[in-house]
Design a protein around this nucleic acid. Sequence first.
DNA 1: CCCCTCTTGTCAGCGTTTTGTCAGCAAGAG
DNA 2: CTCTTGCTGACAAAACGCTGACAAGAGGGG
Lengths: 220, 220
Amino acid sequence: MRVLVAEDDDRIAETLTTSLERAGFRVERERDGEVAWYRGDSETYDVIILDLGLPQMDGLTVLKRWRSAGRLTPVLILTARGQWEERVDGIEAGADDYVVKPFHVQEIVARLRALVRRANGLATSRVQFGKYLLDLRIMEVSADGMPMELTPQEFKLVSYLVHRRGQVISQLEITEHIYNQDYERDSNAVEVLVARVRKRLGADVIKTRRGFGYALGDGY
Amino acid sequence: MRVLVAEDDDRIAETLTTSLERAGFRVERERDGEVAWYRGDSETYDVIILDLGLPQMDGLTVLKRWRSAGRLTPVLILTARGQWEERVDGIEAGADDYVVKPFHVQEIVARLRALVRRANGLATSRVQFGKYLLDLRIMEVSADGMPMELTPQEFKLVSYLVHRRGQVISQLEITEHIYNQDYERDSNAVEVLVARVRKRLGADVIKTRRGFGYALGDGY
DNA sequence: CCCCTCTTGTCAGCGTTTTGTCAGCAAGAG
DNA sequence: CTCTTGCTGACAAAACGCTGACAAGAGGGG
């Protein structure tokens, strides 16, 4: 889960960052509206948190530009208490949800999860794949009610593959989505991780497309 | 991946060149706006890096000319810090992304990759050619649902030919687009590759135009 | 505070597949 | 017929991904 936090207040941004990272998101932060705009335009995030009062280019403009360029990444906006017109404007500009400052971080996390789910077209936070059930809320994969005891990193990998079911995903893409930016070019961490997941869920859960990447196995 | 770097500052150009080459791009460099325009107009690059302050003809003009001539090659522009209007102008002139100088080279590389992905992916992820279906999402060519098991290099060749369907493509062009910079001028690697694809998909999928190059066969 | 456990990245070694090279051959053009 | 261009099969090198072992770091319990 890759999330962009566009927020100029350092304290807020840091609170968000730590909580989101703890919740398993990969956070990138931007304090300038214009820069935030082009990152949201050129990169693929799973969800974006957007403060409306940004320097350089205000959040509403940023959002409108994304939408008019066809970017459908779910956006959650942050507004100050009492500024209800802002919220209305935001929703009309294409925001998917909003949270009022000051906020509870858990609330943000919950809303983000909901947004991502909705965007993926998954009705619930629980997804069935093959004989397994992936539950995003409790971060668990189970089979017939029996939990599978995945480690956090393994869980991230499975979530991402399930999320992009039906596609082949390169090692680079996996690295970018489940690791923080410090990725070494020649590391076989992903391969090892895949092996570990296979050892737990069965070898055919993840299939290898040599030279291309990985995908969920047939029937998953 | 073929990239044109239009930049008059030697130091910047060299930094870019080495990093891009290390990242697997095939780099061509031009320091003069007018020449850059001509090359971008007559050659086919996968992506172009364009400095706006070029001698002879400024970058914005170059870009506008390409766009009005229908060249859709993704362009990333380089602007100086603080030149906010430049960026807006650039985007409106048809740039796909921009980076502010001074920049981190890794950032450029990441952006280029994103651009190329977007440009290739946005076109269409599934294309029918003859009895075959090319699916970029799962990196597979299939006939009646039966996957054809192409190797990565074979797949790249087919993708490129399909992408430029109806045109005759020289061996040099193929080399430039599907190999990294290290191509030996006297190598028959492309011929061998063509032979391998023919062995898999049938001899008439690719036809030879002796002395000129290759093209997709009639009916494909 | 120490010790134990769990997680995770790194590494070296291995088997397999992929790919470039080469030499000889076939075929088209003149 | 000759010359040039492209094709083919064999081979070897390189790339790719898998595995088991190891060690550093995080976290928990005593």
